[in-house]
Structure formats: structure tokens, C-alpha cells
Design a protein around this nucleic acid. Structure first.
Length: 553
RNA sequence: UGCCUGAUAGUAUAAUGGCAGUACGACUGUUUUUGGUACAGUUUGUCUUGGUUCGAAUCCAGGUCGGGCAACCA
């Protein structure tokens, strides 16, 4: 595979464990909570967990961390499975923390029996108060010294539904004076009379994250439990539970989560964008979700390549969105079918061309000639892009202006002879003459032109709606920007071109292929498309050297 | 002010006591029937102070700066 590439710190740990024979093979897991859609940050974790197993001949479980029934839904379970599959990964087993509720309950009973857990009747405010602060130790309350028998009975009563939400909790008895807040008798079970998307109403008590995650890892014999940096303070608790319960010693390792410029990555914020309709749903192509990127046309390969490029480390990071876009372009350049589309049409009459239609051949992809060619109609009335003409051209402008020549892609060289304006002074039509011996593929004219334009034959053009997406936010580091993140939403993140003119081949092209509209960018057919109305999403634009040049002037 | 954690080019990431390298970006140029692609080249870096050492990005000590931790969320 990638023998010459250096290992990240987790790969080093895995190799070391394998080399000393600590494990025969590794088992990782991807453990999402089904309370939202997966985003590009999850993709990093997916690629890491599944990638590790793939590289070292191990396996990966997909485990839903469904211990909080009030936020979780089957809709999210389904979307998560679809996204992981689409990214190209196969899980060894589809599992749920809720599968283990009985076993986890028994774990808590064991802790109580060992005198290591107790039922606390305090309300949440009191518990928070007694926990102290990071600089002040907490205090032990009277419930802490309840007898094992009483604790056992109370816990059974909790399960039996004798108490209302919040009336009692079970806490691990660890150390109220610990410098680590998570070790100050953490709550491990709470009462929640809520319907669970899988276990229904079988339970009214649910384990907390810290008493479900490590336990689930251990039950599954996960060797390397990989999570993000914010769980570092949880690790002593993770290890404490495993030690006291005397169960399989899974080990937790932490890496830095992905942050990306011009976007948000937290489920809370993404949910807010959806609920307040700043975007049109979880898969709005401007979102950072996997489903949005899929809809927008980002290939799964590009996302995997991106995750590989950004690496895995413990340092906080903010990755340029442009790196993801680079990965998308790199892939699409090799695979996308070239087509010609004009967004903002300017009519050209080719005055010396006969009143007939000619069919011209054009390659589908110059990077991959095996994709063949297609036939494009050409006649004496065509459309080009309005900004491919300037009445007074600046220097280094290689497009149309009075007297200037350009090549029409896969067709002829034309010369601009005249232009027509309406009464408001807008250019409405160009009169050009073509060079008959300059036909593409058999050019004997000897003329060299600097510019080549895409064009569409007026009589056979089909209309299409084009959706152009820009970054959703106006600032690079949205999460750390002052104030409400919604204040930084880019009002121009979606531009719709209702009536673009496209070459007729697009009408019969398959719906699932990627296109490059020549000189415009990469596009895919959106699912909103109908038989009569084609709708395209711009996946990503092309690099635009001229825009840079023009900006300098 | 407690505990935990981190700091290498604009952004990421490698070098595991022995020539600071790679990718993206930026900038030049060549090629080009996409101002795309490809190719060639240029540019910019070890947070700081001291110590150990023949030799320190790496080890040690202090400082500075960043991130996390006080949910019956995960």
C-alpha cells in the first residue's frame, strides 16, 4: 500500500501492539450517536477507524451510541448507514449500545455490590453544587454512605419505574476531591421516561455515555477505541470502569477533530441551520454533511483522499476548504464528461456560414480518450457567454472584441466583425465571420488564436437550471468568530441561473455521471431534476487564472 | 487560580539525538482547441529562555501562547 508514507501516531501504536503480540488482530469501531447527519468531521473518523482495520487486516464495527432516547431517531440511523456505505466502507457488525442495556445494568449492579456505586436522591442543582469547581474540591453528601442493600433495592425500584425523571441517579463512588471533574462521583444512570427508537418503553433508566461507551467497547472486544481530544479527561473514568468491572481492557486513544474554513461542524449548529431554514435540509449542497457533499457531486474517493491528506495528529487544526476542493477537482478532472453550457447568452450570427446544420465531433474527456466523442450540432446562430465579449478589451484579454479572433471549441475560428446594441446601450448580438479552413481537427488556416470559447447552437439548445453554490459563511474560522455564528452566513451562497443554454447531449446523459461544463466548473444533475426541467448543481468551480489576472489590474 | 493537552512554512503533516522533507496555497515559466489539466522552477518554517550533548525540532528545566474539563448530552 503506502509503504513509503510515514505512520501517524495511532498507526504507530497499532503496529507496536501487533509487533509485541498484544493482539493478533485489531478491532475498531465507529460509534455515532444517531441524533443528526454525519458531516465531513465524521468522515475523518470513519476513514481513520475503517482505514486502520483495512491496513492491518482487522475489522470495524458500526455501533450506534443510542443511550439518550430523547434526541435519537431511526431516520438518523438510516442516513448514517447510507453515508458510511457511500464512503466505501463495510462494517463487520451493526451494533447498538442499546443491545447491551441489560448487561450494562448488571455492570451497575456489580459496582453497587462492590460498594463502588450508590443511589443519590439529590436534584441536579445540588449535585452540580456539591461537585465543586475545577479549583475547589467537591464534597461528599449523606447518600454516598447508603448501604449496599439499600442501594440495590433503590436501583431496582428505579428500573421498575417507581420514580419520576430526575428523582434519583446512580453515581460511581470514586473521589469527590479529584482534580479531574469527571472522577468526582460521576452519574452513571439516570431516569428518563422516554420512548427509545429501538428498545421502546422497555427501559425508563438509561446509562450515561461514560457508563455505556467503554462498556460497549469492552463487550465487543474493541482493541483500539479512537475518539476526539475532548474525551481525554474521560479516559481515567473509562479505565476505572474497566478495571473495577474486570472486563476486556479496550484502550482509548484521542486525536484532534477536523475543523474546516468557512463552515461549521457541530451537530447543534447544523441542526440550527436546518431548523431555521438558512439551508434547505440536511443535504443542502452547501452543508458540511456527507449527504450534502454527495448531492453536490463530491466523489467519495475525493473525501477519502482528503482525509488521507489532512493526516491524524493531536494538534488543533483548521483545514482550508480549498484542500477539499483540490481533491474534488483532481478526481473529477480525470472522470468528468466535458459538455458545453452557456449561462448568460449572447447571440452570435455567423454571417458567412450557410443556412444549414453541421455535426461536429468533440472528445468527452481529453484526459481519458477511451471515453470517446460526442456529436454537437453547429449552425450560423449560436450563443456564447456574455462576458466573453468586450467592446473595449483590456490587454491580455483573449476573447471576443471588435476585430479579434477566437476558436469555438471543437468548431471553427471566428472573427468579430460587428456588434449590435439596444437603445439602452447593451450588447445584444454579434456579427462574426468564420474561417472555413479552420475546422477543428483539419485546420489548414495556419491561424493561431489565444482564446477558445465554449458555445451552444441556438436552434438545438436545451434549457437548464443551474445552481451555483458558494461558501456558506463569510469568515474563515466560523466557530471562533465573535458573537452568533449565524451573523456570518453568506447571503450569496446560492445563485440560481434559471435558464442556461446547454448542448443537447445533456438531455440524454445518465443522471449519475459527473460533468465538466467547459470553462465553467464541475456539475452534477440534482435530484430535483424532472424530465422537462434539468437541474444542475455546481460541484466546484474550475481554477480561474483570468479572474486572478483581471483582479490585479 | 486547579487538572489535562498541545505548539515545525499561509494551511496541514513528516523527520523517533545526525543534511528540516512532503502536500495544498502563492509566485515564475513551458505546453495546451478549457485562462482548466500536465510539466518545470521559485518562495516561506522548528513558540521562547536556559541546560545536557561532538551534535537538539527531538532529551531536561523554566516561561509564553492555544485548546479542553465544573450537562441527569455524546
Amino acid at each position: 500500500m503506502s509503504e513509503d508514507k510515514s505512520l501517524n501516531f495511532i498507526e504507530e501504536i497499532v503496529e507496536a501492539d501487533l509487533n509485541i503480540g498484544k493482539y493478533q488482530s485489531i478491532l475498531t469501531r465507529f460509534p455515532p450517536e444517531p441524533n443528526g447527519y454525519l458531516h465531513i468531521g465524521h468522515a475523518k473518523s470513519i476513514c481513520l477507524n475503517f482505514g486502520l482495520a483495512k491496513k492491518y487486516g482487522g475489522k470495524t464495527n458500526l455501533r450506534f451510541d443510542d443511550t439518550n432516547p430523547s434526541t435519537e431517531e431511526t431516520e438518523y440511523v438510516d442516513s448514517i448507514k447510507e453515508d458510511v456505505k457511500w464512503l466505501g466502507f463495510e462494517w463487520a457488525a451493526e451494533l447498538y449500545a442499546s443491545n447491551y442495556f441489560e448487561q450494562i445494568y448488571q455492570f451497575a449492579v456489580q459496582l453497587i455490590e462492590k460498594g463502588l456505586a450508590y443511589v443519590d436522591d439529590s436534584n441536579s442543582e445540588t449535585i452540580a453544587l456539591e461537585k465543586g469547581t475545577p479549583t475547589q474540591p467537591g464534597i461528599e453528601n449523606a447518600f454516598r454512605s447508603r448501604s449496599i442493600t439499600e442501594n440495590l433495592q433503590l436501583f431496582a425500584d428505579m428500573r421498575a419505574g417507581k420514580y419520576k425523571d430526575g428523582e434519583k441517579v446512580v453515581r460511581a463512588k470514586i473521589d469527590m476531591g479529584s482534580p479531574n471533574m469527571h472522577m468526582r462521583d460521576p452519574i452513571i444512570y439516570r431516569i428518563k421516561h422516554a420512548h427509545h427508537h429501538r428498545t421502546g418503553d422497555a427501559w425508563c433508566i438509561y446509562p450515561m455515555y461514560d457508563f455505556a461507551h467503554g462498556q460497549s467497547d469492552s463487550i465487543e472486544n474493541i482493541t483500539h477505541s479512537i475518539c476526539t481530544l475532548e474525551f481525554i479527561p474521560h479516559r481515567p473514568l473509562y479505565d476505572w470502569c474497566i478495571e473495577k468491572l474486570e472486563i476486556f481492557p479496550s484502550k482509548q486513544y484521542e486525536f484532534a477533530r477536523l475543523n474546516m474554513t468557512y463552515t461549521v461542524m457541530s451537530k447543534r449548529k447544523l441542526l440550527q441551520l436546518v431548523n431555521e431554514q438558512h439551508v434547505n435540509g440536511w443535504d443542502d449542497p452547501r452543508m458540511s454533511t456527507i449527504s450534502a457533499m454527495r448531492r453536490r457531486g463530491y466523489p467519495a474517493e475525493s473525501i477519502r483522499e482528503f482525509c488521507d491528506k489532512i493526516g491524524v495528529a493531536k494538534r488543533e487544526n483548521l483545514i482550508d476548504l480549498s484542500l477539499l476542493e483540490f481533491c474534488v477537482r483532481e478526481r473529477l478532472n480525470k472522470t468528468a464528461m466535458r459538455r458545453m453550457v452557456v449561462f448568460d447568452p449572447l447571440k452570435i450570427v455567423i454571417t458567412n456560414y450557410p443556412n444549414t446544420t453541421e455535426y461536429l465531433e468533440s472528445e468527452n474527456n481529453p484526459e481519458d480518450l477511451s471515453t470517446g466523442t460526442r456529436s454537437i450540432p453547429f449552425s450560423n446562430v449560436i450563443f456564447v457567454e456574455k462576458d466573453d465579449f468586450m467592446e473595449v478589451a483590456p490587454k491580455k484579454y483573449f476573447r471576443l472584441s471588435p476585430g479579434q479572433m477566437v476558436r469555438l471549441k471543437s468548431a471553427y475560428i471566428i472573427k468579430c466583425d460587428d456588434f449590435i446594441k439596444d437603445q439602452d446601450g447593451n450588447i445584444v448580438e454579434l456579427h462574426c465571420s468564420y474561417i472555413p479552413e479552420s475546422k477543428s481537427g483539419s485546420d489548414t488556416s495556419g491561424i493561431n488564436v489565444k482564446g477558445t470559447l465554449q458555445w451552444v447552437n441556438a436552434a438545438t439548445a436545451i434549457k437548464a437550471e443551474i445552481r451555483l453554490y458558494d461558501r456558506l459563511f463569510k469568515v474563515e474560522d466560523v466557530a471562533n468568530a465573535e458573537g452568533d455564528f449565524k451573523d456570518y452566513i453568506n447571503p450569496d451562497s446560492l445563485q440560481i441561473i434559471a435558464n442556461a443554454y446547454a448542448e443537447p447531449a445533456l438531455k440524454t446523459d445518465n443522471a449519475d455521471v459527473a460533468f465538466q461544463f467547459i470553462r465553467k466548473g464541475y456539475f452534477v444533475i440534482d435530484r430535483d431534476s424532472t424530465h422537462d426541467q434539468l437541474v444542475f448543481n455546481r460541484t466546484v468551480n474550475l481554477k480561474d487564472g483570468w479572474a486572478k489576472e483581471a483582479k490585479k489590474a
